[in-house]
Design a protein around this nucleic acid. Structure first.
Lengths: 113, 113
DNA sequence: TGCCCCTGTCAGCCTTTTCTGACAGGTATG
DNA sequence: CATACCTGTCAGAAAAGGCTGACAGGGGCA
């Protein structure tokens, strides 16, 4: 039973996914994590960007649901945050974009909760 | 014989598409044009944004190959630029992103030609 | 000629995103 | 205790995007 989005993502969801993926660094991050899961510091060295920057990009990807991070304790007691790519699947067609656009929240910087 | 991209877009192409679609206004523009083709001024009024702004968004969409604009002469001689949505189709999965990321041009602000 | 609608572009402003360097806390090891 | 590697966050600079108002040219119509 695949957990992937069937066919009709909400506008806001799709928007997050698209803007998250629409960045060279973040595309490379997904690529790197797909080969093997990794923790922040090592991944930063591998890709060649600063750690705070990678941290920011990972946040964006995680907020879009494209990767997930789990804080794990290594044997030596060090806390390391490992990231994995989620098996996402989205289709992009004019019709799908149109359906998503119709459900866009847009305005209101929601503070309700 | 469908003209749509089969399965493996280049990194730069996919990047353009994703960043073009990752914007509320541009999603709405695609939605509006899918219902019916339209010219710039009318579309700007319909969506409720300024004409120069719409012009900019349309450029971005056209550069990504998602819409096409054709300058047409109305019967009364007026020049109007009509835009149509192209029947694009992209799939988004970790593997596809990874393949695209591998072909990213990135650096060099190409001036070669 | 004056008015209306069409097209385009440009300077400038404001907001968001991207990015760096520094700081703080944690647990080992020499 | 100093070092090394892990985590996170924050202020502020730099760059990219988004947006407006004004300007310029074109044609039709009264």
């Amino acid at each position: 039973m695949p957990e992937v989005p069937p066919a009709a993502p909400t506008g806001d969801e799709l928007l997050k996914v698209l803007s998250a993926l629409g960045n060279p660094h973040r595309m490379r991050i997904v690529a790197a994590l797909l080969e093997r899961r990794n923790y922040v510091s090592a991944l930063a060295r591998e890709i060649g960007i600063s750690r705070p920057l990678l941290h920011m990009h990972l946040q964006r990807l995680e907020a879009a649901g494209l990767v997930v991070g789990t804080l794990e304790l290594a044997e030596d007691g060090k806390a390391m945050k490992y990231f994995d790519v989620t098996p996402f699947f989205y289709e992009l067609t004019p019709r799908i974009i149109a359906r998503a656009a119709a459900t866009l929240t847009e305005a209101e910087k929601e503070e309700a909760k």
